[in-house]
Nucleic acid binder design. Structure first.
Lengths: 98, 98
DNA sequence: TTCAATTATAGCACATGTGCTATAATTATT
DNA sequence: AATAATTATAGCACATGTGCTATAATTGAA
């Protein structure tokens, strides 16, 4: 029997057992906090207030605050927009350890 | 009157006018497609199938396929988990132009 | 100390990310 | 050509990201 067949069977059964009632999605607090620090640092270095960044990027002020306090899990598109608005490269924005 | 007061007023009124009925969230197709290509390239270079990556990362196979075809907007935590699982740095994962 | 500017928090409605299950399509191997 | 392996797609239920509005808290300037 091939490797992947067993992989599938094992995957299904173990996941089901772990998912009986409440399903929690991934929330990488450590990674999000590292990102938050980097984003805030770059925003300040580029001379934006949260309000200015919100206005120029089209992303709401409350959302920027949530991201910079690692309280939510932003999507990639949101990050791409912030990156373009502040004219910062993605490798620089993600230059931290997780 | 200070700058930010007008900023707030202008922000509120223009956003409301643009948001009369249906609200569309940001979906940066260009950025997501670039990311998808980079993710798939690195996954192949590291020798993972989608199935293997799903199993080791705990992220569903369908989600990995959706990400690699730029059909959805993944969250940062999802990306951080994939980065750790494949042992690839974030700057490398985001080494593309948007 | 007071006030202005900035950032953080709260809660609601809506859009959508995610897991699951199944199936279809494509690619690789025999 | 047939089969196996891999990837893509579909749809549903649930979790949560996002915009909006308002307010609270913190920080900076006067």
């Amino acid at each position: 029997m091939c490797y992947n067949y067993f992989l599938n069977i094992f995957n299904l059964s173990s996941m089901k057992m772990a998912r009986e009632k409440d399903r929690k999605l991934i929330f990488d607090k450590q990674g999000l906090e590292a990102f938050a620090i980097q984003l805030k640092k770059i925003r300040n270095n580029k001379g934006f207030t949260q309000n200015q960044l919100a206005f120029e990027s089209g992303i709401s002020i409350s959302q920027i605050a949530r991201i910079e306090t690692a309280r939510i899990n932003p999507t990639l598109s949101t990050i791409f927009v912030l990156s373009r608005t502040m004219d910062v490269s993605l490798p620089e924005l993600f230059n931290f350890q997780i």
